[in-house]
């Protein structure tokens, strides 16, 4: 088996995965009958269509030639995801100032040409600006400092 169109192949596989998750999860919901459509009806129908489309993509990728996938660089995406998770973990307890300055500082290292000092300064500026915009100008209900 030779994959001729890697982009199509992997996207087909991704759709198949989501379809499988959808079908598995939705199998627990009632389908309903007749005019009374249950909560499972639409999700099951959609998942089935998605599975079909995924299968078409996968099969087609074995026959027709297509583009290859560009190399995945792990550093940017990994750093960014970790950043967001850290923010989620910090914000409820530690408040905006600490969480945001951490996140913007760490995020800077997703790039290759980051200079630590510059990143630190940038994070201070961004934090001050954000507190100004979100807390004082927009009055969003955010705690600025840690609360225990």
């Amino acid at each position: 088996m030779i994959i001729r169109a890697p982009k199509d192949f992997w996207s087909g596989l991704m759709f198949l995965t989501f379809a499988a998750i959808g079908l598995l999860a939705a199998s627990g919901y009632s389908m309903g009958r007749g005019g009374r459509m249950g909560p499972g009806y639409f999700p099951v129908a959609l998942s089935a269509v998605l599975a079909l489309l995924g299968a078409i993509l996968v099969l087609r990728s074995l026959v027709l030639d297509g583009e290859g996938v560009e190399r995945i660089q792990f550093r940017p995406i990994a750093v960014l995801v970790v950043c967001v998770l850290i923010f989620g973990a910090m914000i409820p307890k530690l408040g905006l100032v600490i969480s945001l300055s951490c996140v913007t500082f760490i995020a800077a290292f997703a790039g290759r040409e980051t200079r630590p000092l510059e990143a630190a300064m940038l994070s201070v500026v961004l934090t001050v600006l954000s507190v100004g915009i979100f807390v004082y100008a927009l009055r969003l209900p955010l705690s600025v400092w840690p609360s225990f």
Partner: peptide, 13 residues
């Protein structure tokens, strides 16, 4: 390099 940390921070908040 100066812009993207701002995007990330803004999206989080």
């Amino acid at each position: 390099r100066l812009m993207f940390p701002a995007i990330v921070g803004f999206c989080c908040v």
